[in-house]
Design a protein around this nucleic acid. Structure first.
Lengths: 200, 200
DNA sequence: GCTAATTGCGAACGGTCGTTAGGTTAAAGT
DNA sequence: ACTTTAACCTAACGACCGTTCGCAATTAGC
């Protein structure tokens, strides 16, 4: 039927699968994702799809890794230009909020959704989620530490507490956008971040 | 085999099923809940289980309704004793946080989990979730309004904004407890609520 | 040009899914 | 005492699940 592709196109097919899987999993969940459905969407056979990964769990991990990479490129990478401290953090949360509000089918921040889906389900997927969130937490904590040192925040600031509250703002934004589809959510979230990061 | 039960015990069986389904769905999700698995846990046949509800979706709605009722009895009902305004709201969030931190197998606030699971899945279940959350939102907004009238909060308070941020605190608590199993989460959440509700 | 490796397909596997039909048994109504 | 109703069962249904096997087609290495 179709002509065979060169080896260089193997990676292309792989990422085509992951792209489609990301879209599918953002509505059905990472566990609700099925190989048959994925194969239909891609106009491939089930064997052709799973052959690239070996098992469903490996596919799930690959999809998650792709989502994490996408988040990294979209959020922290776009904030490197800003001055370390509150400025960079504000920028990063700004980007995150924009990212969640994009409606190009990928259903908000995939990582946030999967974190909720797998919170009570031990295994490699949960571990990978925890890794990604730990990395993000470390990033936020480091920037907050810088901000305190630079006196942008009061010296007695409880960094862990502030990180907790910032995370809450992001989660509230995610829910407002995904569930309630409230167009004011990004504005509210930005205001909340500002209230936390700009010393009163 | 087993003796037939009286009609009065029909409701008992029904609630036995719902109880078990709540436990199961709090780890597997409401969609990941399975009639076969449920029947095995209850030592019943699949037909015996589904016969009480008619379809899986009806079962899901019944489970959700039970979770909502449980939340109502646990959170707002326990706050009626407190004075309307910030006092009652603080009490309500206190109860909510305690509720989420309970580890008796029911996996935190079920409503919060399902809200995330069905945020991108239209249908009766999503509608029921939206109803429940709208009711809770109205409750919070009303108490905040009372607090503003009573000058417990500044007159220029943006009630919607404050409700958004309070919701974020609850979501952060849910994630910290369920995913990270951080024993400090309740303390952090209470501190965050206090920072929002006690005028600086 | 020949061989080896890669890529994807078709078909099938045992298993589980939600749902339904029909039968059995006990309780309720009269 | 007899009938009706309700609760629950076994058995089966078609559909789909993830996974595996063998095979055809194409490319890469030599």
């Amino acid at each position: 039927m179709s002509p065979r592709k060169s080896v260089a196109e193997t990676a292309a097919t792989r990422s085509r699968i992951i792209d489609s899987a990301l879209t599918l999993a953002s509505t059905e969940g990472l566990e609700g994702l099925t190989i048959g459905r994925l194969a239909t969407d891609l106009e491939m056979s089930k064997a052709g799809v799973i052959g690239h990964f070996g098992s469903k769990e490996a596919l799930q991990l690959a999809v998650l890794a792709a989502a994490v990479e996408r988040f990294r490129l979209r959020v922290p990478a776009r904030a490197v230009g800003a001055r370390p401290g509150t400025e960079r953090l504000t920028r990063a949360f700004d980007e995150w909020i924009d990212y969640m509000a994009e409606v190009e089918g990928h259903g908000g921040c995939f990582l946030t959704s999967v974190a909720s889906e797998f919170d009570g389900r031990p295994g490699p997927v949960r571990d990978a989620v925890l890794d990604a969130l730990a990395s993000w937490s470390a990033y936020v904590a480091a920037e907050l530490g810088t901000a305190v040192e630079a006196r942008e925040l009061p010296p007695h600031t409880d960094v862990e507490q502030l990180a907790f509250e910032l995370n809450g703002v992001a989660l509230a934004a995610h829910q407002s956008i995904q569930l309630h589809r409230d167009p004011q959510a990004p504005t509210r979230a930005r205001r909340a971040v500002a209230r936390l990061l700009i010393a009163p």
